[in-house]
Design a protein around this nucleic acid. Structure first.
Lengths: 231, 231
DNA sequence: ACCTGAACACCGTTCAAGT
DNA sequence: ACCTGAACACCGTTCAAGT
């Protein structure tokens, strides 16, 4: 269903290595935290949040279940690591002018949202998990940008959380509506069945015609208008 | 830990009924969807999201586990029902002037947020669950208020989703930071340990001094400024 | 330092049956 | 119409042990 990431690309057996029979090419490299996390992300992408199981994860890695526990404390740990993995920041488009703080903030936040939408499970996971280094890094970047743009220290935290809330809210909403076609159909049914009870949202086709990207951009613009440093 | 709802108040045995021995007062009323939902909310309040178990739920209800399945399709169903239960709308403060649309919208959204914060599990659950009648009712109310205030039909869906996203984002963020003192402590530790890597958010004490209510109100004001119908 | 299997205490749900 | 227990196919994790 959902696109899988390439993850650990299957290396050809190096020449000179003893050749394994073709039908059993599981030339598994040794377990490592990195491999575990990459595979966990693959599994989450493929099977969703309930699809991640220590047993299934071990199977994919070609190891015993309990081997995982040497590298990882528990399942929560795996979630934290997978989440942070997905939020690696692949660098901004280099030194923008200080004038363009607004464009830079928009870039940072859209990249954030895009990263999460590539892995829909991440959106609903983030609010419940610890903040890993990549998440903190993104917060730091956002913070610095706003600060340099002239937002007063006293207003900084409110500004950051407002933007964070907007990113989280719109990403989670979008991801959840994207994921559950059943729910959507059920909601539509319930709505048209009860259109006398919910006439307004039925008329506006709230649950059916929604421009998520447009909503994100417009809400962001409103927030930035409000947050912009007075000059 | 978390306040429990009163739920089904324990009725005294009606006079004329055969008296049960005092030490076994489990004069359980018959199972019903209502009792199941109320008890599920109690259990979620007390034990959190992972604390809700069909077996524990049945135990609290004094019934066999499988009895639940006559009233309910599966566990997901229980989540949907508990979530919607928590979002019952206890009426607005009666017919406000049409001029006061802004106050009314703020009231609706703050009540929404308050309801969810009373049951912190609801915030992280809502994005993944189907929309029940109470949730739809709140959307309808919001929709009607905005429409009557003069928001054009073409802008209505964007307006509603922007506000919804803001409520969800800020409630989820707040609930998650409220819940996990451990994570907070860990984050603080990680931060102060690595203050050279995250200097800006360390300086602003982003993770420690946050005025969630203020952030909610201010972000809401910015959004309403932007969404307000041009006149 | 790294990996393992057996075992434990749980899950949600199917099924066939009881009243 | 409503409730039940036994059974199945799973879970995450402890533990004692292997290399």
């Amino acid at each position: 269903m959902v696109a899988k990431r390439s993850g650990a690309q299957s290396k050809r057996a190096r020449p000179g290595e003893l050749p394994r029979p073709v039908q059993e090419p599981r030339n598994e490299p040794p377990l490592s935290l990195e491999r575990i996390v990459v595979t966990a992300v693959e599994l989450l992408d493929a099977q969703g949040i309930d699809g991640l199981t220590m047993r299934r994860l071990a199977e994919r890695l070609g190891s015993g279940v309990m081997s995982l526990y040497w590298h990882v404390d528990n399942k929560e740990d795996v979630f934290d690591l997978a989440l942070d993995k997905v939020l690696e920041y692949r660098g901004a488009p280099e030194a923008t002018e200080p004038q363009e703080w607004r464009a830079e903030v928009i870039h940072v936040l859209e990249d954030w949202r895009t990263s999460m939408l590539r892995h829909p499970w991440s959106a609903s996971l983030l609010p419940r998990r610890a903040l890993g280094p990549n998440i903190l890094g993104r917060l730091e970047l956002l913070s610095r940008t706003l600060s340099e743009a002239g937002v007063a220290d006293a207003d900084l935290n409110v500004a950051i959380w407002s933007l964070w809330n907007h990113v989280m809210g719109s990403t989670i909403t979008r991801a959840s509506f994207e994921l559950s076609d059943d729910d959507k159909a059920a909601a539509q049914q319930r709505l048209t069945g009860l259109s006398e009870r919910y006439p307004t949202i039925e008329r506006s086709r709230l649950l059916l015609d929604s421009d998520w990207d447009g909503t994100f951009r417009q809400g962001l613009d409103f927030l930035l208008d409000g947050l912009a440093p007075r000059q």
